[in-house]
């Protein structure tokens, strides 16, 4: 598949995020223009401090750019107020964080439906059941997070991200806290969500094996896009990282 034939789900144009000013200014993002395509699984990689999380937060409406613009579903986020951004996150974006993904007082089922319930939306029940089945959570629905394993918690988080059929899902090191088998399980669920359910996913990761699940990888360094790779394998990624490292 070539990028030209795919619709853009989210993008940035000359996005910069600057902390501080003058001589102390830190460019977390420096003139970044990227696009994420619908129905694709995109991974973002790069050394620690390269701006991966910042990029994700800015596109997801959790943080503001200093310069440039972030666009989701054709809307420039900088034109929106807190309320609009909140609604956008609720309806058009799904999140999976590295840890502390779930509300401890709610059951797995309630956590999955949380964004829908916040919007007073019943959602598409058949879809939700499908999602729950896909991530194998049928018999865990009434449990609270403290009664679930780390892997199960992340699966609930993925299900939550999918439940409201968002335009795009952002995952920041979703497998960072998991052992490799459980991590692989989560990643294949995400892969399935893209292939079988037609979802769009953007994932930040440090792990070449994880990145290999993606359709496309964007490499960041010092706040800039430095490389891109399609149809990656773990070996190809490792090779590229070695060259970038030098």
């Amino acid at each position: 598949m070539t990028p030209q034939t795919l619709a853009v789900a989210a993008s940035t144009i000359s996005a910069s995020k600057i902390y501080g000013s003058g001589e102390d200014a830190v460019y977390a993002l420096n003139d970044v223009s990227v696009a994420f395509y619908e129905g694709q699984f995109t991974a973002i990689m790069g050394p620690s401090g390269s701006g991966k999380s910042t990029l994700m937060h800015c596109i997801a409406g959790l943080d503001e750019l200093t310069k440039g613009s972030a666009i989701i579903d054709g809307v420039d986020l900088s034109t929106m107020k807190d309320k609009g951004l909140t609604e956008l996150r609720r309806e058009k974006i799904g999140f999976v964080f590295q840890s502390f993904n779930l509300v401890p007082t709610l059951t797995a089922n309630e956590n999955i439906r949380l964004p829908l319930m916040l919007g007073n939306d019943k959602g598409d029940e058949a879809w939700i059941q499908n999602v729950i089945n896909t991530v194998h959570l049928q018999d865990r629905l009434t449990h609270r997070p403290s009664e679930l394993s780390g892997g199960q918690q992340q699966r609930v988080a993925v299900a939550r991200a999918l439940a409201s059929k968002p335009r795009i899902i952002f995952a920041d090191e979703p497998t960072g806290n998991l052992d490799s088998t459980t991590g692989a399980e989560i990643l294949s669920f995400m892969r399935k969500a893209v292939d079988e359910l037609g979802q769009t996913i953007v994932m930040v990761t440090h792990d070449p094996v994880a990145a290999a699940y993606a359709d496309r990888i964007i490499f960041l360094a010092d706040g800039k896009v430095v490389n891109e790779m399609t149809e990656p394998t773990a070996a190809k990624v490792l090779d590229l990282m070695k060259t970038l490292g030098n």
Binding site: L62, D82, K83, T86, E87, R89, R90, E91, F95, F97, F100, N101, L102, V103, P104, L114, P115, L118, G119, R160
Partner: peptide, 14 residues
Amino acid sequence: QRELALLRAVGMTR
């Protein structure tokens, strides 16, 4: 705070 932040992130309004 973390819980509140999570809720806000997934779409809870002020």
